[in-house]
Design a protein around this nucleic acid. Structure first.
Length: 869
RNA sequence: GGAGGCUUAGCUCAGCAGGUUAGAGCGCAUGCUUCACACGCAUGAGGUCGCGCGUUCGAGUCGCGCAGUCUCCACCA
């Protein structure tokens, strides 16, 4: 086996191993009545997108969970797929069209444009899938889905029609958020608010009867063109007498009513509010209550309409012109600085324009009820659970969901309008005639549905719904949904109410939330900032295992993490450490069967016992989704316990040709590979293939379970005493600058001679000393010898010539003082009755042990001191 | 205006059913071509666990308050 290279090279391994897994069909989840299902659906990445670190964390977590459950014997299904990503994809294709051919989508027409998008999808749709594979994702690629494939489209159609029939989808004129750049409506969730400095302009509107005027304040003066009234609070004494009067809109000349409405806050501004029903949601409501006229003054492109001389101007251009005119004509009373939140489009970050528009909505209140219930009663659990609060808060205040988008790429709304009778036909099959009057003079609604409308169905549409498939029966509800906190509202919330409504069953039991990956300065990674890190490049340099381990360890659930390439280096080093440990074990292997020897030595019991604790803890961590903790513990075990101690300790035995040591090494190594596999699948599989093994592949091996028969607490503690002695000798030697070449024989005096004798062989090796003689009796002549004292032993080293006696005395005195301090502390603690009676037994006995140790140590030190004279 | 997170070693972060001497990686210092690994080994320096009060026999760990910082939700024209 010595042909293995000294350094582990992921590039030589990862592609090959992934292909082996594919060839073995290990990713494919077989329905099996004898197994329990475990299902995760992937948060579908944008079909033409590229893998970024955000995906990388998300996918790694899912892959770790799926691999763990697969090894645990579940029928583990990780269902992959992509999202058509309406706005994002359409914008990209349009941009491409504009740059390369100077065309708009309207130049091509709907059908041809959609052909182009499909071309684009087919060209780039595979890229992200390939990238997921380089990460090691063990998705069931046979079940790969796309939100616009036939099945998902059928599900979307079914849901739309069914909700429409129940009256939960309606079309209506509301104030919606309009992006003039993307020229489409947006849902509330798609608007991001940014604080921007602005102004508060105070305008004077003269009363029609000439008896005075009202002063209104606005942050968006251009909307005044659409004003159709002024509102005051009914309890406002200042304005009691003008309610019912009319005023004249400057520049336009329109006569408008002054109405009283509770909505107006008397304390803000002047207490008079201009009403623009078509461009402000509150004004819209007030307008409905008081029958105010609705005049739309900003069009789909953000330009003025119905605004006389300002028609055609861009909204911000119009603002300037209008302000200039108002000022010139004496209507501008004053201007204040005013910071306010401006809504922007989450895709293009243009300022969103609120405007009245005919759109399709999902009525949320009835749907929210169940969605709230299942989280409140714990049917669905959030991890960490603080995100349940976030979710519930949103769900409690949710407003109707605007689902129509003025795009072409997506699921076209299945509604047909009759030109003759005006009836709307909503149908599962494409309609040829009006269902009411039979007229063939019908046209289909050109709009498509919000992308999230189809993602909302993902946990069941991908399993075959609305058909009653065996997959759906077996794998639904899914188990864990893994995602970042940034899409709880977009996606998680909508899957929950959709699942409850259409399946009558929660879509998943646990929502595992992770944070965002940020750059080293804590900033969000973005293309525009140029601080993004390409995971593919990281994999190329350090390997997928290193990247995965970096992303899994070192941060707590739900918290953001900063990405440091240096950490990948550390993880790469860890992989290399494991590689070399395995290489060493193999180089010394003469046995072929992986079985523990009948007789175990002290150190064997120690490592096996440590291993059992590790196994127990890791399994527990998994159950609590503490993946980072589990990974860290495995890391520590491999590096510290296994490599730095056990391998070193067994070297003399291996040299002597001891087979039992080989067997224990192989046993522990194998378990460690199984433990680590979900986190570092490639290197563990590669090593597994090279050592004696019985299974087909590590990926389908069983995950280690705690084995009581291999837990040896007493031997574990005993061996720690030996370690203590070794460390003490090393420390002392370093302190005295003893050259490594100097290998004095050591006399170790202890009452626990059995324990220490078991350790002499490797003690002499580890501490770079000569032979170790373990005895219960102190040597007769120890004068001038260097002594090293531990709680259970006293070691004599003939290195007196290196020691300044005075210094030595000083050092021991210092140690003694510390020990005595410890004794005093412990005695005080144990003298406290409350402590002894109230603290748990394990704690009290730990304190007693500590006291005993300190006392023993002090005694040894005193003897040493006396010995020095 | 509400809600929540974070504050632990020079840096980035773990930690907690309250209970040995608070950990890791990187960095730093010293010594090692020890026959798995210098992507390594050994030894070591470095921490009033943001501040204050409280609960407790005992508090980085629980409660309250304060400060700094970040985020989300809502939004008054």
């Amino acid at each position: 086996m010595s042909e293995l290279p000294k350094q582990y090279d992921p590039k030589q391994v990862e592609g090959k191993i992934y292909q082996q897994w594919l060839d073995g069909g290990y990713f494919h989840a077989q329905r099996d009545p004898d197994k329990k299902p475990f299902t995760i659906v992937i948060p579908p990445p944008n079909v033409t997108g590229q893998l970024h670190l955000g995906h990388a964390v998300d996918e790694t977590i899912q892959d770790v969970l799926i691999r763990y459950k697969r090894m645990k014997g579940y029928a583990a299904l990780w269902l992959p797929g992509c999202d058509h990503a309406g706005i994002a994809t359409q914008i990209k294709v349009e941009e491409n069209l504009r740059v390369n051919e100077g065309l708009t989508r309207f130049d091509l027409g709907r059908e041809k444009f959609l052909d182009r998008v499909w071309d684009w999808k087919n060209k780039y749709g595979d890229r992200i899938v390939q990238q997921l594979k380089t990460l090691g994702s063990s998705c069931d690629w046979d079940r790969q889905r796309f939100t616009m494939d036939e099945g998902c489209s059928k599900a979307v159609r079914e849901v739309f029609c069914s909700l429409y029939e129940k009256g939960l989808i309606y079309k209506g004129k509301r104030i919606i958020n309009w992006c003039p750049h993307c020229t489409t409506a947006l849902s509330d969730a798609e608007v991001e608010y940014e604080e921007k400095p602005g102004h508060l302009w105070h305008l004077r509107y003269p009363l029609a009867d000439g008896s005075g005027d009202v002063i209104v304040a606005t942050t968006r003066p251009e909307t005044m063109l659409g004003d159709t009234g002024v509102a005051v609070n009914p309890n406002d004494e200042r304005y009691k007498d003008i309610v019912g009067k009319t005023c004249i809109l400057p520049l336009v000349g329109r006569e408008m009513p002054i109405v009283a409405d509770e909505y107006v806050d008397m304390a803000f501004g002047t207490g008079c509010v201009k009403m623009t029903p078509c461009h402000d949601p509150n004004d819209f409501e007030v307008g409905l209550r008081h029958n105010l006229e609705q005049i739309l003054v900003i069009d789909d492109n953000g330009c003025i309409i119905n605004g006389g001389k300002y028609n055609g101007m861009d909204r911000y251009e119009a603002r300037k012109a209008i302000l200039a005119d108002l000022e010139e004509q004496g209507y501008l009373v004053k201007v204040e600085e005013h910071v306010h939140n401006v809504g922007t489009c989450y895709r293009c970050h243009s300022d969103v324009e609120p405007l009245a528009s005919d759109q399709w909505f999902v009525k949320m209140e009835p749907l929210a009820k169940e969605a709230i219930r299942v989280v409140e009663d714990g049917t669905i659990k959030f991890v960490p659970d603080r995100f349940a609060k976030t979710y519930l808060n949103w769900m409690h205040n949710v407003r109707d969901w605007c689902i129509s988008r003025q795009l072409w790429w997506g699921h076209q709304i299945p509604a047909w309008y009759c030109a003759d009778c005006g009836h709307v036909t909503v149908s599962r099959e494409d309609a040829c005639q009006c269902e009411k009057c039979g007229s063939k003079n019908i046209t289909r609604d050109p709009d498509v549905l919000d992308t999230w409308f189809s993602s909302a169905l993902w946990p069941f549409s991908t399993l075959g719904w609305p058909d009653k498939t065996e997959d759906l029966e077996y794998f639904y509800p899914t188990d864990v949904l893994v995602t970042g906190y940034d899409i709880i509202f977009f996606w998680v919330a909508r899957m929950i109410f959709s699942g409850m409504e259409h399946m009558k069953k929660e879509p998943f039991k646990t929502v595992l939330i992770h944070g965002l990956v940020r750059d080293p300065h804590g900033k969000k990674m973005s293309k525009s900032a140029g601080n993004g890190v390409d995971p593919i490049e990281v994999i190329d340099q350090y390997g997928a295992d290193a990247l995965r381990f970096n992303l899994i360890t070192g941060n707590s659930p739900g918290n953001d993490m900063r990405f440091y390439v240096e950490r990948c280096e550390a993880m790469r080093n860890f992989a290399n450490k494991l590689w070399n440990a395995a290489r060493y074990v193999m180089m010394n292997l003469t046995v072929r069967e992986n079985e523990l020897p009948p007789e175990l030595k002290l150190e064997d019991k120690w490592i096996l016992s440590k291993l059992q604790s590790l196994i127990a803890e890791v399994n527990e961590n998994f159950d609590k989704y503490e993946l980072g903790l589990a990974a860290t513990k495995i890391y520590d075990f491999i590096w510290d316990s296994f490599c730095d101690w056990y391998i070193e300790i067994t070297k003399p035995r291996l040299r002597a040709g001891d087979e039992s040591a080989q067997r224990v090494l192989l046993y522990v190594l194998t378990d460690v590979l199984r433990l680590l596999h979900p986190f570092m699948p490639f290197i563990t599989e590669e090593i597994y293939g090279a050592i004696p093994h019985s299974g087909k592949a590590l990926i389908v091996e069983t995950y280690p379970e705690f084995d009581q028969a291999l837990s040896f607490p007493q031997e574990e503690a005993d061996f720690e005493l030996v370690m203590e002695a070794v460390k003490a000798v090393r420390s002392r030697r370093a302190e005295m600058n003893v050259p490594p070449s100097k290998r004095p024989h050591i006399t170790l005096v202890t009452e626990k001679t059995d324990v220490f004798r078991a350790g002499t062989v490797y003690m002499s090796d580890l501490a770079f000393a000569g032979a170790v003689n373990v005895t219960a009796q102190a040597p007769a002549d120890t004068a001038g010898m260097v002594t090293v004292v531990t709680s259970q032993a006293k070691l004599y080293m003939p290195l007196a010539e290196l020691v300044d006696l005075a210094k030595e005395r000083e050092r021991i005195a210092k140690e003694l003082a510390r020990a005595e301090q410890d004794i005093a502390n412990q005695q005080r603690k144990l003298a406290n009755e409350s402590f002894v009676s109230r603290a748990p037994e394990r704690v009290v006995s730990a304190e007693r042990d500590k006291l005993a140790k300190a006392q023993a140590l002090a005694e040894n030190l005193r003897a040493s001191l006396a010995n020095l004279g």
